[in-house]
Design a protein around this nucleic acid. Structure first.
Lengths: 353, 353
DNA sequence: CTGAAAGCGCTTACAG
DNA sequence: CTGAAAGCGCTTACAG
């Protein structure tokens, strides 16, 4: 009943070999005779042996655990993806340890715990503040750090970004190509890197096209922010005929605001977001958006952790991955197919900027 | 530059004591003289020492890690809460290791990994299937198992549940008290425990009141299911004047369906959900709902893990925690305040049923 | 093909 | 008040 949890030691006794042999056999080491290996496997199976990962970690100096730091943000996009992300990690033989950073705190506050567990690395989403000191400490402890959607302070951390600049640019190009002439923009949190990148892409697209942004507001990436912004935008005499919100959450708020005023989407105004949040698929929103390539972003992040672990002197890397345009019903179709605009570019990767 | 990660060993050398003393000093052991303790603390600080939790786990046989198994469900309610949940865990000095169970798999499929890490326990949300075999294996490995929102197979796992029966009952009572006479119900996934509990509460309330359920459909807990169900319900000659959906996601779908038909909420029909999902706060939904007491549910789950670890022979426990009614705009107000209905019961706990 | 030994970095009875 | 020693359950050069 209360029999002890089986160890390699007891298997070795049963098999009449040493635990070295058991350890090797369990790892499928070819140097152990097939006969012995099979015998040991069988015994392990029978006693219900499960290797102790803690002990293994101690000797191999690999925990097999990657930290994943999420922030207390209202924009739950990356939380929505968590099951996917966790699955991707497990497929790559990594476990995810979750760290939730409360508002007002930053990575430094949980760093001690991360370090204690000797994590193989840590992935930090954009909404979590990080300091140069934290990056340095991670380097000292050789814990690879991968930042999502932003470049870190000091060059000690790798970065995996959605191509926010390019994505925003494509959205504006799409809106222009679909005969919108009064395009308004709702920006995110002014300080944030994502916000700045998306805004830059947006402006570049207008410049390139020789067109002008019609109006703009700041929505702080929140639902209410987007709602309020849209309310203001739509209350002018000559209303915009398109709203590009820097994230989906604000776009949802904007759509609700537009409907509250009694206007129709997309007949009176097109609304486009950025992210690919779930609720965008709901009929109430049916949101045209630029989908972040979560799958490849996360796979890449884990690869970065892995590489850095194997090759500690390898310099940190940065990669941009193209988002995918998803056209739904919240935006007007182009009157005529404009060959200039490519709807859904292949998700290509580009190094550097 | 490439200086090694400091250990208790090197601190002991610097301090001129043994590592036993260092270990004790760092734990604040009163038996070590204050002078020595402070000296060691200072040195630890200076060299940037971080204890190795892996090594500690090996000796203490406590990993400090709790598994958290989530399913591949469309209903992201518990995913939305993940940052809260992770925070609660950290506050109680536990780390969360995430396990994502793909559709069609169950806990058994990830159990080996959970066991390998010698988790202090594992919390499993209701959407993840679990077998009696898995429960047994956890017991053999003395890994406490806590099930959320359902009772496990065999009595080897503890359970923490939202009082789904009582919550559903209160919703029906509320609807009856607010002068609805044709109340329809959209059920969840027929096989699921949550679904059955909520349905039972619903029926009990009608029986007790001597009233009858007007109509019903099955929505499988999905957005589309709720939408389709509502579409059908509302296309009858004498439409329901209230819809109670067994979860918020279906309620969202139902609301969209109702609006698509051109009807108003709550004037033409009240819609009430169950869960307390974020989107319920958005103006598009503004959903009256029964909020699951996530905070206390999770705190309790961690406490259960903790207790069972300390006292392995302690029998598994089951607790029901009252949800909290949240009235928003999707439901009609009672014509007259009915003293019979208590809107927001205090979140009380009751043992057993 | 297998074993004996050392070691990973801690903690904790047992002494003194 | 502190130390010497054993042990947690593995892995992995080094031998043979």
């Amino acid at each position: 009943m209360a029999r002890p949890v089986p160890t390699a030691q007891i298997i070795s006794v049963i098999a009449g070999v040493t635990k070295s042999t058991v350890s090797r056999a369990l790892q499928g080491d070819e140097r152990i005779s097939l006969e012995t290996r099979q015998r040991i496997l069988k015994i392990a199976e029978k006693v219900g042996y499960t290797p102790n990962a803690v002990a293994r970690s101690l000797t191999t100096k690999q925990s097999g655990i990657i930290g994943y730091a999420i922030g207390q943000t209202e924009n739950v996009f990356f939380q929505e993806q968590l099951e996917r992300i966790s699955l991707i990690a497990h497929e790559r033989n990594a476990r995810l340890m979750l760290f939730s950073i409360p508002d007002g705190q930053n990575v430094t506050d949980v760093l001690p715990v991360m370090l204690q567990y000797r994590l193989d690395g840590c992935i930090v989403i954009a909404s979590v503040p990080i300091t140069a000191g934290a990056v340095e400490k991670c380097m000292r402890y050789r814990m690879p750090l991968v930042l999502l959607n932003r470049i870190g302070p000091k060059t000690g951390a790798s970065s995996v970004l959605c191509d926010n600049v390019g994505g925003a640019r494509d959205i504006v190009r799409f809106l222009l190509a679909s005969d919108h002439s009064r395009i308004a923009y709702i920006g995110g949190r002014p300080g944030s890197a994502i916000s700045q990148d998306r805004e830059r892409g947006m402006r570049e697209a207008f410049d390139t096209a020789g067109e002008k942004l019609y109006d703009e507001r700041v929505g702080h990436f929140t639902f209410e922010g987007g709602r309020q912004a849209a309310r203001e935008l739509m209350s002018t005499k000559a209303r915009p005929d398109a709203i590009f919100a820097a994230n989906d959450l604000m776009a949802f708020g904007a759509i609700d605001a537009v409907k509250e005023i009694g206007l129709r989407i997309p007949e009176d105004v097109s609304v486009v977001g950025f992210d690919g949040a779930r609720a965008g698929a709901w009929p109430a929103y049916n949101l045209t958006t630029m989908v972040q390539p979560v799958e490849s972003m996360f796979t890449t992040a884990i690869e970065f952790v892995e590489r850095q672990r194997i090759e500690p002197l390898r310099p940190p890397e940065t990669v941009y991955i193209a988002p995918q345009f998803l056209q739904r019903g919240s935006s007007r179709l182009p009157k005529a197919r404009t060959p200039g605009f490519v709807g859904s570019p292949e998700p290509i990767r580009k190094k550097g900027r």
